[in-house]
Design a binder for these strands. Structure first.
Lengths: 354, 354
DNA sequence: CGCAGTCATGTAAGCGCTTACATTGCGCTG
DNA sequence: CAGCGCAATGTAAGCGCTTACATGACTGCG
C-alpha cells in the first residue's frame, strides 16, 4: 500500500549481495511470484506456455532460489544431516558416500558435520544442523545424552542411528552387532591357541561401539574358560600413531600378549607397523587383528585379519529408512546387518613355546 | 539452469516443527524481540539485568535461533563452505581439519560438500552452498568453468583456491607449486639412473594438479636430455585398486619402466601392492614414488618415497585469507607454500643391468 | 530549570520465499 | 444461455529473524 511512498532516495543503503530474486523473475516473465514458485516446485500446475516464459527468465537472470528463504517459508529444506565422529579417515566415508547417493535419488541433499568423537560437540552439531533446517538426521552409535533424544523427539525430527544395532534404545537403527562380531573374531583368535590377549581399543567413554567390541572379546574369553579381566586393554585415540604406541606399551610390559586385537583397522595398522619396527614377526611372534575391513587392511603387509563391515549397505539402508520416515512412517524398523570375519595373514597359531 | 529437475520432495504433513521462536523468548522475558536478538548477538548493548532475564527465558524454553531466518534477515550466515573432490580418503581431510579449526577461532562454521572430482558437480555444489548463504568459499585447484568465476565475482563472494598456486589465475590461492614439486622428485628419480619411467596419474581432465605434476616430470626429463614424450602415462581413477591395475599394465607392457611415479600416495600404495603380488622387489626391481605424504606413505612396506605437502598449514592459511577478505580486504594475497621431498625406501638405484 | 547528549529498549519494515485462498476465464451441461 | 466446475494464475499473509530508526528516561551542564 505504502510501498511507493518510501523510495530509497539516497540509494546509499547497504548493498545486499546481488543475486536476482523470485520477484525479478516474476517481473521478467510477466507473472506473479506464486507462479514462478510453482514452476520451480510443482511444474505440472503451470501451463506450458507460462512455464517456458518463466524458465527463460530464470535462465536469463541466472536466478537461483535463496535457500534460507525457501526453508523458512516452507519449513522443510530437502536436506538431511549426518554427524560423524571424524572425517580424518575412510571408515565412515564409504558408508556416507552410499548414504548420499541414495539420498540423491530422492532429491535430498546431504549436510555433513563432524564431532571429533566428542559427545558435547555432537550435541552441539545436532542443534546446529536442526537450526539449519535439516529434515532428518543420521547419527553414529546410540550413546548420547538423553537430552539430545528428548530434543529430537520434541521437534519430531526423524533420525537413525547407524554403525550399531540395539533393540533397547528407543530409536531406529541400522547397523551390526559389534559385540557378536568381535566375539566371533575373538573366538578365532582363541581357536589359534592364544591365551594372552592384548586389546587396543578406541576410547570407550561415549562410544558404544568400542565398548561392545571389548565386551565381545570378554565373552569369548569367558566362554573359553579364561578370565575375562586378564585382558590388557589400552584405550587410545583414533590414529595409526596411537596404535603403534599402544602396541609398544603392550609388548614391553610383563607377560606380553601373543595376540593383539585392535578396535579398528587403523589402530591395527599402527600396531603392525610397530611390530615391524620392534622386530616382531607377524603372525609368528604375535598375531594382530583389526575391525572394519577398510582398504588399508587388504594391502597391509602382512594382510590384516579383520571383521568386514557392510559400510555401503548400511549407508543405503539408513537413507531408505529416513526417507520412509519422512514419507510418514512413524518409526522405521531397525535393521541388523551381517558382518564377516576376514581371516587373512596377521592371525596365526600361537608359537609352540617361547 | 535446471532448478526444478529433481524429483519432488514429498510434501509431508504440514505440522510445523515446534521449537520456540524469538517471540516466545521475548514474551517470556518481558522484552521485545529486538532486545532478545541483541542479547544473543551483541550482549554489550543490553544492560545486565535484562540480559539475565532473557538468558533465563532462553534456557527455560530451550530456544535455539532459526538459522534460515537469521541468514535471511542478516544476509550473512557465519558459515564458510568448502568443496573437496572426495571425502573417500584422507588427502583433503587433514587440510580441511586445520581449516575448520582456524575458522572456529573466528566463530565461523564450516560446511563441506564433495564434487566426486567432477567439474559439473562442483559448479552445482558451489551454487548450492551459495544459495545456502555461505559467506565465503574454499575450493580445490583452479581449474573450473569461467562461468563459475563470473558467478562468484557477480555475487562478490570471497573465495580461495587451495592445493595449487597460480599467479595467472585472477583469484587468490594458497598452495604449492605442483609442477616444481614433482619435478624435484623426478630429478631424484633420474639421479638414481632411471631412464624408463612410467607414470600413473589421476585423470587430468579438469584437474590442474594432476596436469602440473605430470608436466614437472616432463620438465625433468627434458632437462636431463631425455625425450619427455617417451613417458608411459596412465590416467586412472583415484583408488588403491586403480593404482594396482595401472601398475600391472605398465609392467606387463613392452620395455617395462624401472621407476613408476604416481600422482599421489594412494595410487602408489596400490602400485606397491601389485608389485609385491607380481613378485617385484621394491626398489631393487622397480622404484615407486608417490605424492602427498599421507600417513599411509609412512607405514607402507617398504616406506614410500614421496613429496610432503603441508596440508595443515594450507588449511590454516586458507582460513586466514578468507577471514581477512570478509573483514574487508579486497583480494587476499596468494601464498606459496613449500613442499619437501621425502626420500624413503621405495626409490633406489636402477639395477646394474637386466 | 531546561536542553542536549547518552543509553537502553521498543517499533516495525523488511529479507526471499511458499501457499491458502481469491479471482478469472472458459468449456460444459441442462 | 444461465450456471457450474475447474484449471490457471494472482494476492497477500506469513515464516523467524535483524536492524534502522524512534522513544523515553536519565545525566550533566550552562
Amino acid at each position: 500500500m505504502t510501498i511507493a511512498e518510501k523510495p530509497n532516495i539516497q540509494g546509499l543503503e547497504k548493498r545486499r549481495r546481488a543475486g536476482p530474486t523470485i520477484q525479478d523473475v516474476a517481473r521478467a516473465a510477466g507473472v506473479s511470484t506464486a507462479t514462478v514458485s510453482r514452476c520451480l516446485n510443482e511444474p505440472d500446475l503451470v501451463i506450458e506456455a507460462t512455464r517456458e516464459r518463466v524458465f527463460k527468465a530464470v535462465d536469463d537472470l541466472g536466478y537461483a532460489p535463496n535457500f534460507s528463504a525457501k526453508t523458512l517459508a516452507a519449513n522443510k529444506s530437502g536436506t538431511i544431516g549426518a554427524i560423524i565422529p571424524t572425517m580424518e579417515n575412510a571408515i565412515f566415508a564409504r558408508g556416507l558416500q552410499a548414504f548420499q547417493e541414495e539420498l540423491g535419488e530422492f532429491g535430498y541433499t546431504l549436510l555433513v558435520a563432524s564431532s571429533a568423537y566428542r559427545q558435547d560437540l555432537e550435541a552441539q552439531q545436532i542443534r546446529n544442523l536442526v537450526a539449519r533446517g535439516v529434515d532428518a538426521l543420521m547419527l553414529i552409535g546410540h550413546d548420547r545424552d538423553p537430552d539430545v533424544y528428548a530434543f529430537l523427539a520434541k521437534r519430531g525430527l526423524p533420525f537413525v542411528n547407524t554403525w550399531t544395532y540395539n533393540r533397547d534404545v528407543d530409536a531406529s537403527s541400522v547397523g551390526f552387532d559389534n559385540r557378536a562380531a568381535m566375539r566371533g573374531l575373538a573366538e578365532k583368535v582363541l581357536g589359534f591357541g592364544h591365551t594372552r590377549v592384548g586389546v587396543i581399543s578406541a576410547h570407550r567413554t561415549h562410544n558404544d561401539r568400542a565398548r561392545e567390541r571389548l565386551e565381545g572379546i570378554r565373552e569369548a574369553l569367558s566362554a573359553d574358560g579364561l578370565e575375562p579381566n586378564s585382558l590388557s586393554v589400552l584405550d587410545v585415540n583414533y590414529s595409526i600413531e596411537s596404535g603403534a604406541m599402544a602396541f609398544r606399551t603392550l609388548m614391553e610390559g610383563e607377560g606380553a600378549p601373543t595376540a593383539v586385537m585392535c578396535g579398528n583397522d587403523v589402530l591395527a595398522v599402527g600396531a603392525l607397523d610397530m611390530a615391524r619396527q620392534m622386530g616382531f614377526a607377524v603372525p609368528e611372534d604375535v598375531s594382530i587383528t583389526g575391525f572394519d575391513d577398510i582398504e588399508l587392511a587388504q594391502i597391509s603387509t602382512p594382510r590384516l585379519t579383520t571383521v568386514h563391515v557392510p559400510h555401503r549397505e548400511m549407508g543405503k539402508r539408513a537413507a531408505e529408512i529416513l526417507i520412509g520416515m519422512l514419507g510418514g512412517q512413524h518409526s522405521g524398523p531397525s535393521t541388523l546387518l551381517k558382518t564377516r570375519i576376514m581371516l587373512r595373514e596377521t592371525l596365526g597359531p600361537v608359537r609352540a613355546s617361547v
